[in-house]
């Protein structure tokens, strides 16, 4: 296992001294997870493996842009994997504008230093909070993130009225927001 702090240290080691051993450890931890994430989205294992490798190469390339005060390593890797998944799905059409350009990983400069320490902790809290969501709420959130489904598609699949899915999403996000804001104030 890799703690959030260790993972952040490893990314910084790549940024400061192109540390290949650090990369190897990140790869061992994240590549199988990213692959599983892509497979759940409906890709075949071969393609998922390729996307996971590309995502990890992106981790290497962009390591210097990682800022542990703004996001945890897992959050950052997730955003990279998500963008790679989008690129993969669109490749069947025409070459798209690189998603990195417009699907921002985080705000480039928010200058909000007070929140920075908390931003790194958000991930840990979110992880704990996910356990606090009801099964109904969690399934909608998981389907959105991992099965590559919009809230409209989720409603169809679960045979639920769209309004029900929307309200589950809002309740889930409301709970997350409330609890996180309590922490931050």
């Amino acid at each position: 296992m890799l703690s959030a702090d260790e993972a952040a240290d490893l990314i910084e080691a790549i940024a400061t001294r192109q540390d290949r051993a650090a990369f190897a450890r990140l790869f061992q931890h994240f590549a199988p997870r990213v692959k599983a994430f892509i497979v759940r989205g409906g890709a075949d294992p071969e393609a998922a493996q390729e996307v996971a490798q590309e995502a990890l190469i992106m981790v290497w390339r962009k390591a210097a842009s990682f800022d542990r005060t703004k996001a945890s390593a897992a959050t950052w890797v997730f955003t990279i994997a998500r963008n790679k998944r989008i690129d993969h799905l669109r490749r069947n059409n025409r070459p798209a504008i690189d998603t990195d350009d417009w699907l921002t990983v985080f705000a480039p400069e928010d200058g909000d230093a007070d929140k920075s320490v908390l931003a790194g902790q958000t991930y840990t809290r979110v992880k704990a909070l996910l356990g606090g969501l009801s099964a109904d709420q969690l399934v909608v959130i998981e389907k959105a993130f991992f099965e590559d489904k919009t809230h409209t598609a989720i409603a169809e699949e679960l045979k639920l009225p769209l309004g029900t899915v929307k309200s589950r999403i809002r309740l889930a996000l409301g709970r997350l927001r409330e609890a996180l804001e309590r922490d931050e104030s």
Binding site: F30, F37, A71, S72, A74, F78, F106, L130, L176
Partner: peptide
């Protein structure tokens, strides 16, 4: 900025879900 913060949190949800994804041994 307010929607940006919501998206930051949602990205953290994505990170947390990625982290708890069960994976076979390397």
């Amino acid at each position: 900025p307010s929607s940006q913060r919501t998206v930051d949190r949602l990205n953290a949800v994505g990170g947390a879900l990625l982290e708890r994804e069960p994976v076979p041994d390397f």
